[in-house]
Amino acid sequence: MTGYFLRRALVLLSTLLAASLVVFVVLQVLPGDPAALMLGTGARPDTLAALRHHLGLDAPAWLRYLRWIFGILRGDFGISYTYNVPVAELVRQRSALSVPLALLAIVLSTAIAIPVGVFAAARRGSVRDAALMGAAQVGVAIPNFWLGILLILLFAIHLPWLPASGFPGWGEGLWPGLRALILPALALALPQAAILARVTRAAVIETLGEDFVRTARAKGLTRGAALWRHAVPNALIPVVTLIGLQFSFLLAGTVIVENVFTLPGLGRLVFQAIAQRDLIVVQDLVVLLAGSVILVNFTVDLAAAAIDPRQRRPGA
C-alpha cells in the first residue's frame, strides 16, 4: 500500500503542476492586457507602463509563472486587479457558500441514488424497477440550470416556501443560510442522482450474480441480508469512483446554477472576474477548481485501493 501511495502521490504532484502550467499558458495566449483594461482606452503610455510594472506584468513569462506558483505555496494567490484585495480573501468569502452547496448536493444525490439503485436492482424486471429507471432516464436528460428554474417556479413562486434567489450568509444562523441553498442543491443533485442510481443498479445486479452472494443465501441468510451485507458493499467501488468523477461536473454545474439563483459563490466570482478581465482571479480559481478535482479523484482512488487490494495493481 505504501508503494502504491507514493506512486500515486508522485502522479498527483506532477498532474497539479502540469494543470497550473496549462492554465497559465492559456491565459497568456488569450487576448486582453489587464493593465490596459484597468486603465481604459485613454490611458497614457507611461501610466500603463508604471501599472504593468506595479502588477509585475513586465517580467518575463517564466518568472511570472514561478512567482505565481511559489506565492500559491505560501498561501499568497496575488491581489485581485479589480477588488484590490488578496484573492485568497475573496476565495475564502465565496467558499462559505460554494463549498456547503457542493457538499449538500453530493450528500443529497448519494442519499437519493443509492437506495433507489439498490431497490431497483433487488426488484429488477418489476414494474417499479421500470418506473424508477424510466424516471432516471429522464432525470439524466434534464439540464441542472433548467431544473433550478423549475424548482423556483414550483417552490418559490407557486408555493412560496423557499427563496427564489440570493443568500443571506451564515451570520443569521444556520437555517436562513441553509434555506437559500436547498433549491440550488436539489437542482445540482437530482440529475447527478439519476446517473448514480443507474450505475448503482447495474453494479448491484452484477454482484447479485456472484458466487459469494449465492453462498450467502445457501448458508441461510435472508434475501435482504445477502443483499445488504454482501452484494451492496461489493458493488460500492464503481459507485464511489463515479461520485468522485461527478465532483468535476458538480463544480462546473455550480458555476451555472449559482447564476440561476444569483448566489454570491465561486461560480459568480469566476464570471465577474472574466467579465472584468481580472485575470489573476480567473487563473487562481481555475487552478483551484482543477486542483480540487485532481485531489478528489486521488482520494477516491486511494479509498478504492484501501477497500479493494485488487485496485492497487499498476494500470488498474
Partner: peptide
Amino acid sequence: LAFAFPALLTAVMITALA
C-alpha cells in the same frame, strides 16, 4: 490532465475571453 478541468467551466472561460 484534461479531465481535471471541469469542462463547462473551462468552456465558459474560453468563450468569455475569446
